[in-house]
Design a protein around this nucleic acid. Structure first.
Lengths: 196, 196
DNA sequence: CCGAGGTGGGTGAGTATTCACTCACCCCTA
DNA sequence: TAGGGGTGAGTGAATACTCACCCACCTCGG
């Protein structure tokens, strides 16, 4: 109980969104898990919706920093190493953020608000693709990717597979997701070499 | 109002799950949109949850039939034609089913129940990948795919990109998704040829 | 050095509303 | 006349949110 209350509330909300789901993450259980009263929630957030939006903005990781960094400095390592690192981080990123992002589809209003906030910040779920595309084009300029290759399609393929991994496999069931590092390596090799 | 009531109720529930979201698809609004009373819902379904599960099972399209058909008869057309057709159908499939499947993340209990039902039926969100993998291996045996290619990674890439398309682009916003047919063609070409 | 008073964070006990679901009853048709 | 499909009017439970109040701590004039 040393953390400030605001942080404890955000922790509790984040955890409950993941465990029981957005719909069952009520003010009562959030307060209970945060170790405070329901009324205390409203001292820190004006509404439950604002609390959720804050969780989305402050607690979900970002993928773009890595992409920007690599796009600005493409040749530091081999393209395969760079792509494997991107795919690995992307797989972990989607594993964390996808369940929460997905649950917004159950609350269209909240989803709309969150999307508006993201637009204002110049971000959104398509930005990783755009960022990876930028990196790939930088590599193309550097001559390490075939000049006629479709970098946007390649970015869609790689990040799509990483995102799909987060929801195509039932974590609690009989089909655990493949380990992120092997998964990333296999995807990148396949993407680089093609299959035809 | 010629349709039987049961079908009207399923239509209404399906439509509302997409438009206002699972959480706001209450018995009251479903009944109103179906043109009947709330009590009538309970003449056809024992609970709201059963109604939703029925929507999921009866109203969402399937992708596996196409995959099975192609896996059994790989050489009818060129591999590129086959893959473009698969990617195109997959993009449309995910466009329809993803918003509803995603909203289950907000209701963990419902999600668990639905997953159990899918397991019993031998299906689930990873099955399209397994099915496409089977088709690709059939092509590999037929010599139209490089023998050392990783067919599972290739299947993950192609279907992942199609699934990602359904949620990475905000349909109502400034980033509309790319048209499914062009998208499919570009993905397949890139996957076949590689980028390195 | 003191104490009056403002302030930020906290509470228990509500309240209005909404929810899924039920009940007694009805009506049409086989 | 029996019963499947339908209804209007509830019901108890749950939910987001509010209200009056509390208290520890700071500030600052005297």
């Amino acid at each position: 109980m040393q953390k400030p209350a605001r942080a404890r509330i955000l922790d509790a909300a984040h955890h409950l969104m993941l465990s029981v789901g957005l719909a069952r993450a009520t003010t009562k259980v959030i307060a209970k898990e945060a170790g405070c009263s329901e009324a205390a929630l409203y001292k820190h957030f004006t509404s439950k919706e604002e609390l959720f939006v804050t969780v989305l903005q402050e607690r979900l990781p970002r993928l773009t920093p890595l992409l920007d960094q690599l796009a600005g400095n493409p040749s530091a390592r081999s393209i395969e190493e760079n792509l494997v690192r991107i795919a690995h981080e992307a797989a972990l990123f989607y594993e964390q953020s996808f369940p929460i992002a997905a649950s917004l589809y159950a609350e269209t209003q909240l989803k709309t608000r969150h999307e508006a906030a993201m637009r204002e910040m110049g971000t959104g779920p398509h930005m990783p693709i755009v960022g990876l595309d930028a990196y790939l084009r930088a590599e193309q300029v550097a001559g390490r990717i075939r000049p006629e290759a479709d970098t946007y399609a390649a970015a869609s393929l790689l990040l799509g597979a990483c995102a799909q991994r987060a929801f195509a496999y039932d974590a609690a069931g009989q089909f655990p997701p493949p380990p992120a590092d092997e998964f990333a390596r296999d995807l990148v090799r396949t993407l680089l070499a093609g299959i035809g």
